[in-house]
Computed example of a mutant assay.
Amino acid sequence: MGRIVERCDPGGRAWIAEAIRLVEADSNRSADTHLHVFPLPPEWGIDLYLKDESVHPTGSLKHRLARSLFLYGLANGWITRGTTIIEASSGSTAVSEAYFARLLGLPFVAVMPASTSPEKIALIEFFGGRCHLVDEPGAIYDESRRLAAECGGHFMDQFTFAERATDWRGNNNIAESIFEQLRLERYPEPSWVVVGAGTGGTSATIGRYVRFRRFQTRLAVVDPEGSAFFGAFADRDPDRTASGSRIEGIGRPRVEPSFLPAVIDRMIRVPDAASIAAMRWTSAIGGRSVGGSTGTNMWGVARLIGEMRARGERGSVVTLICDGGERYAGTYASDAWLRAQGLDIAPYTAALERFLETGALPDGGPDGTPEASVPDGASGIT
């Protein structure tokens, strides 16, 4: 005789359905993020756009990721009534996940490096989350798994699921939003989109989308000092490790599962002093306070626009405002913190000021600090 096993939990299914409705309703209440024009000399014939992800309800690009991860976990049956949510995060993802956990009435624990900015810790706690700090950044994965097993919770694992939780074909993901907002511009198909990599989910979504839609747009990923991604891409080494990054939200001590090098056209390694100089420069020129990872983006943007200028190309470039600068008042915006870290941003600030005058950045970094780039044609890790 055959055997039938049926798991019937109408109450659980009803809770999941209501939870999904709540998450989608939150999205429906939010307008799309703005695409700002950054002022460049008009004679260059190059338009630069900054997509302002800092205006999400939780103040960063990670709001999109957190929404996708919750929907993915709910649809998979991993998140149910009363599930404790555990996440390994350097800050912004945890802020956004704490928001959605509170929306659904679920406990939330963020496992993060002890070096995470106090401003981000305060935001997580504001949204009802609890912060579990570890001294060694590389230990956040195992500690998250341990905590989840201990309490019977769910480890969201953004670094594994970021690239698959987001529907890269469309469904108002960040790539579709960018191209729709560019539709009436004079260069609606950008020459470059420039992003950083933390989980790798954003670069995976954009890289897949431009190929799926058959656009000729190229994707550049900028990577800060101490991150494993650039070296792994350059040497095709998926096992590359590094010390970790001082630029919160991007750069990792290991190559994360969500990082997809085959959809990236170019990687640029950016010194930390350049990232912070570009953060401050962007805030001053653009009139919007931005964080350190946006500065990393903008240094890469300046490098690419300088190359376009040298070749006599016209077109558009898009990058992201990942979060606001108010989260870094005690770190990147503090001259005392820079001195304590041994970072001199003055040569990079001067280089950016010359960039607006001449349309070029000096090769190799203005003070000899190593800067590297893997150009088109390097396919990355195979």
Rank of each mutant, 00 (worst) to 15 (best):
240 R>E: 08
225 E>F: 08
235 D>W: 03
232 A>S: 15
191 S>Q: 12
227 S>Y: 09
226 G>Y: 08
190 P>W: 03
203 S>D: 04
205 T>A: 14
189 E>I: 11
206 I>Q: 09
219 L>F: 07
215 F>C: 01
210 V>A: 10
226 G>A: 06
198 G>Y: 06
237 D>Y: 09
199 T>C: 09
242 A>G: 07
192 W>L: 04
214 R>A: 11
190 P>H: 04
196 G>S: 08
234 A>E: 14
227 S>T: 06
191 S>T: 12
206 I>G: 09
204 A>C: 11
240 R>M: 14
204 A>Y: 13
232 A>M: 06
229 F>K: 01
235 D>P: 00
222 V>P: 13
216 Q>I: 00
226 G>R: 10
218 R>C: 05
217 T>S: 08
212 F>T: 04
246 R>S: 01
233 F>V: 01
243 S>D: 10
215 F>H: 09
205 T>K: 03
247 I>K: 01
215 F>D: 00
238 P>E: 08
210 V>L: 15
217 T>Q: 04
234 A>N: 06
224 P>F: 12
216 Q>N: 13
241 T>P: 07
212 F>H: 15
207 G>H: 05
234 A>Y: 05
212 F>L: 09
193 V>E: 04
193 V>C: 06
225 E>M: 08
238 P>A: 11
192 W>F: 15
209 Y>I: 02
214 R>K: 15
229 F>H: 15
223 D>C: 12
221 V>K: 13
224 P>T: 07
229 F>I: 05
231 G>A: 08
237 D>A: 14
218 R>E: 14
236 R>I: 00
223 D>A: 04
192 W>H: 13
210 V>G: 07
226 G>C: 08
236 R>L: 01
204 A>M: 10
240 R>W: 10
203 S>E: 15
214 R>M: 05
236 R>C: 10
224 P>E: 03
193 V>H: 06
246 R>M: 04
209 Y>G: 12
206 I>K: 12
220 A>S: 14
225 E>S: 13
222 V>M: 11
202 T>F: 13
233 F>L: 03
235 D>T: 07
219 L>R: 10
245 S>Y: 04
218 R>I: 00
242 A>F: 02
191 S>R: 15
230 F>A: 14
210 V>S: 06
238 P>F: 12
203 S>C: 15
244 G>E: 02
242 A>K: 01
193 V>Q: 02
238 P>N: 05
214 R>E: 14
223 D>N: 14
199 T>E: 13
207 G>K: 10
221 V>A: 12
193 V>M: 06
242 A>M: 05
203 S>H: 05
189 E>Q: 07
246 R>L: 10
209 Y>P: 12
221 V>R: 13
223 D>M: 07
241 T>A: 05
190 P>S: 02
193 V>T: 00
224 P>I: 06
207 G>T: 02
200 G>H: 13
221 V>Q: 13
246 R>K: 08
200 G>R: 11
210 V>R: 15
225 E>H: 11
224 P>G: 11
230 F>D: 01
242 A>V: 02
213 R>M: 08
245 S>P: 07
226 G>K: 06
197 A>F: 09
218 R>S: 03
246 R>G: 00
227 S>R: 09
239 D>T: 10
199 T>L: 14
201 G>Q: 01
247 I>Q: 03
200 G>N: 10
233 F>Y: 15
245 S>R: 03
239 D>N: 15
236 R>G: 15
227 S>E: 06
230 F>L: 11
